[in-house]
Amino acid sequence: MLRSMYAGISGMKGMQQKLDVIGNNIANVNTSGYKKGRVTFQDMMSQTVSAAQEPAGNLGGKNPSQVGLGSQLGSIDNIHTQGNRQTTNRPLDLAIEGDGMFAVTEGTETFYTRSGNFYLDQSGAIVNNNGQYLADTDGNNITIPSDAKSFSVQSNGTVSYINDAGNPDEAGTVGLAQFANPAGLEKVGSNMFRMTNNANNGAPDLEAPGTGGRGTMVSGALEMSNVDLGGEFTEMITAQRGFQANTRIITTSDEILQELVNLKR
């Protein structure tokens, strides 16, 4: 069989994977805190027709002659750039301007997210739409007493409220996690990321917004997806054309094989 046919098959598989990632990005264009994916490719091993030779005698050196055997998936990267901010004027909609991620807990497990749409449960604890608790700088839940008359979240993460006596009080400070390699986090769905060994050297410290290189917090706003529709549609077109070009390689190789078969006649 012709090597070009198998190279075309590998190219088709790669373009299909790229379209899968692009489709997921477009599907999440309005998902708060979503971080888009990006596909990179790399060539497969090459078959050496003739090896390199050093200069010898009256002849100079020769470069190697190699035939590539197709392409393969290099990586699917998560791009953690800042998304656009959407104003909601809702006090428990929190956006991070800069680096850092919210930490939410479920039992002994901690997840991380940039989606800041939080709510109060029956006990006054701040939770997300999955019921996971928003962690403070000590990793504990942040709870606003039921008799509080009003509450607000400051840019430094402090959750303050007016108690029953009419005096200001604090419920805690929202903790932000910062990672050495945010792209190393694992997506687990529901706008959540899980720690991996390549994201950070151990569990990250939770510190107040604006400290340790972390961004500030904006109450009454949400960070939206960082997906650029114009860029995604452009990538979709290139992936589609790439897929078509690889199918043409297969059909052309098939025509050549057909000509070889017809030589028998």
Rank of each mutant, 00 (worst) to 15 (best):
Y119P: 00
P204G: 07
G220P: 01
N130D: 14
S75M: 13
R214F: 07
T238N: 10
A171P: 01
G14E: 07
V49W: 01
T173W: 07
A125N: 10
V153Y: 12
T247N: 13
K149V: 12
R194W: 08
G83Y: 04
Q240H: 00
G57T: 05
Q240D: 07
L134I: 11
K18G: 11
N226E: 06
Q72M: 15
G210Y: 11
V153T: 06
F102Q: 05
T48G: 03
G100F: 09
V39G: 00
A245Y: 04
A51M: 12
T113C: 10
F118V: 09
G212H: 08
E170K: 04
K62V: 11
D254N: 13
A7D: 05
A56N: 11
K18C: 04
E106W: 04
P91N: 07
G8I: 05
G189A: 11
V104R: 09
K264T: 14
I22G: 09
T137E: 13
G33T: 00
G242M: 08
S46M: 10
Q132D: 10
A165Q: 14
S4F: 03
N201R: 12
G166N: 08
G231Q: 14
S150F: 03
E106T: 09
V188Y: 08
M5K: 01
T196W: 09
L59N: 02
R241N: 11
M15C: 06
M44S: 09
I76T: 15
F243N: 01
Q86M: 13
N117Q: 14
F193A: 07
M195D: 14
I142R: 07
Q17V: 07
N201A: 15
S4N: 07
R214W: 05
T247H: 06
V218M: 14
D93V: 02
T40K: 02
P145F: 10
M192C: 01
I144M: 07
T238W: 01
A245V: 06
L263A: 06
G184M: 08
L2Y: 13
A165L: 12
N163S: 05
G215L: 11
T211R: 06
G61A: 05
N128Y: 03
D138S: 14
E259T: 09
I144A: 09
D138Y: 04
M217S: 05
G131H: 05
G116N: 07
M1L: 08
T137Y: 10
G14A: 15
R265W: 00
L94P: 01
V49C: 04
D43M: 09
M44R: 13
T110W: 11
